[in-house]
């Protein structure tokens, strides 16, 4: 599922690099970090480009999860200091919560600029 898309991205990036001679166009979207602190995802709302990788890190003494109802996001329980990553290729809004504390909510909006 990801491979053809990645190849396309790579092809596009190579083309962009060749045509504009901007070397940084080869770089993947910058990694994005979400901190879990005081029972909240920070930032709770995140806008990223397709292909971005988001890393969640739990800074609380209590474990948390990153879980979406449709199963698209399904982290294990993250203990203090644990982190979990996911790459987002498809555009869309990914709403997630913590199965231990369902009042915690976050959304990753994957959009092309």
């Amino acid at each position: 599922m990801r491979l053809p898309h990645r190849n396309l991205s790579l092809a596009f990036a190579l083309f962009a690099a060749a045509s504009t001679r901007v070397s940084c166009a080869l770089a993947a979207p910058a990694p994005v970090a979400v901190e879990i602190t005081k029972f909240a995802y920070t930032p709770a709302d995140l806008v990223v480009e397709p292909g971005a990788t988001v890393t969640w890190t739990n800074r609380d003494e209590t474990p948390h999860t990153v879980t979406s109802a449709d199963g698209a996001l399904a982290s294990p329980a993250l203990d203090t200091g644990d982190h979990w990553q996911r790459r987002f290729d498809a555009e869309g809004d990914y709403v997630y919560t913590c199965t231990l504390h369902p009042f915690m909510m976050g959304t990753v909006h994957v959009r092309r600029h």
Partner: peptide, 10 residues
């Protein structure tokens, strides 16, 4: 402890 809606009580 399992059935929960986002932002809701279990």
């Amino acid at each position: 402890v399992r059935n929960f809606g986002k932002g809701h009580l279990a």
